[in-house]
């Protein structure tokens, strides 16, 4: 698992129930779009993320709808395990 993937997971783990668009993930963890979107799709295909379109009316909002990602229960558990494995061996 790459460092960029860990940073994406860390961003979502800050608030596991929150749904984030790719642009927001970019703003929080600073990963460029060329790296970010393959990671999001990779985690989605692995079942760690799910995504859905933002429930807005683009015409009234005056902007396109965004694709929102959030952690699945499986993704939450697996991501927590990953970070826990890092914390083992680290002195508190």
């Amino acid at each position: 698992m790459s460092l960029q993937t860990l940073r994406v997971l860390e961003t979502f783990l800050e608030n596991p129930a929150e749904q984030l668009a790719g642009a927001e993930v970019h703003q929080r963890c600073g990963i460029a779009s060329g790296t970010l979107y393959p990671i999001l799709l990779r985690l989605e295909s692995a079942g760690w993320f799910v995504s859905q379109w933002e429930s807005i009316d683009p015409a009234s909002a005056g902007r396109p709808r965004r694709r929102l990602y959030r952690l699945t229960s499986t993704g939450l558990r697996r991501a927590s395990e990953v970070f826990a494995s890092f914390n083992r061996g680290v002195l508190a």
Binding site: A21, G22, A23, E24, H26, Q27, A32, S33, G34, T35, L36, Y37, E54, R63, P64, R65, R66, R67
Partner: peptide, 23 residues
């Protein structure tokens, strides 16, 4: 559609172009 929506959150034109190159 997703990228067009996300690029709208960028402020400067250069940032949008960098986003598009990344896409």
């Amino acid at each position: 559609e997703e990228w067009l929506a996300d690029v709208a959150s960028r402020s400067s034109e250069l940032s949008k172009l960098r986003f598009a190159v990344g896409c």
